[in-house]
Design a protein around this nucleic acid. Structure first.
Lengths: 163, 163
DNA sequence: TATTGTTATACTCTATAACTATA
DNA sequence: TATAGTTATAGAGTATAACAATA
């Protein structure tokens, strides 16, 4: 069970910098706005978490998909993450050049590439995942485990709508 | 109060396109990833909602802040929305050129600009807000009012961390 | 000396269209 | 004819540094 809070009287929807109480107008009630801000906050935190590794959000996403689906096609990875084919090319090049991903011509379709993590890629993935999980734990420190689950569940239902 | 759902048995963390069940690996448990996807889904929906108006997420944000704070300073608007001063310039130019925002030198500080919505700006803000609210209602149609409030409250707590 | 807004600039992310090689 | 990957390119969004006018 979760305690519900009256949104309109809460303090959480204001500029966190310098305790600025500037009213946001209709923005306060828009889920999209709060998703945008929360996502940006997590993106900043992510950057700090993986600082020095050369990784970015997209790249970690790709590594994670490949780890969970060895020999997956390049296009399949892109489709899962919402990345256009054209934009996948340089991303995979980056990972291959960095020695994190092995790219082979698919044995069943000579047009396609079969992607697998190298040992270095798997190590990088584990290192990044560990760091990110630690950072997320801090970001969500004031939430109960149940609240975190609820958040994940609600976000999952949203994204399921339209990918 | 809210009913909690067992996340691990839910179907919400998979690629919605074509019922693709591609496993996401460790990504599934990262809040940042789901925030990113949900935010992207809402951004796409936003674009459809305001299609033909010439508006974008940032611009609607600015209109909303100005509406709620007439004669607000340009820099204050940027700070509230996390927009750098340098990037505010062309955004405000765009709104002034479009006849949506009136820009005057502040009477109390001749360095600063005092921003107010024009009648057209207020009409545009109302039109966009109405469209976005209608679209969001559809995006969140399968959530109860309590779940939506909980979502807003949890997102607000996240963004309050680091703006 | 600090701050408001400005300019110039660069880098990332994203989106589209045209191409190739295979199917 | 359709699909996997490629190339080139253009548009947002975002970041920094240097500057002018004013505080």
């Amino acid at each position: 069970m979760l305690q519900l809070v009256d949104v309109s009287t809460q303090n959480g929807f204001q500029d966190g910098m310098s305790g600025n109480p500037l009213p946001l107008g209709d923005l306060s009630s828009l889920v999209g706005y709060h998703l945008r801000r929360a996502s940006a906050a997590f993106a900043l935190d992510f950057q700090e978490a993986v600082k020095g590794t050369g990784m970015r959000q997209v790249l970690v996403g790709i590594l994670s998909i490949i780890a969970a689906n060895p020999r997956v096609n390049q296009g399949t990875v892109g489709a899962a993450l919402g990345i256009k084919r054209a934009n996948m090319v340089s991303l995979i090049n980056e990972l291959v050049d960095g020695g994190l991903v092995a790219r082979e011509v698919s044995p069943t379709d000579r047009r396609a590439f079969s992607l697998t993590l190298t040992q270095a890629g798997e190590a990088m993935r584990q290192e990044c995942t560990a760091r990110i999980q630690a950072h997320e734990a801090q970001m969500l420190a004031d939430m109960t485990a149940q609240e975190r689950e609820t958040l994940l569940e609600l976000l999952g239902r949203i994204a399921a709508k339209r990918l």
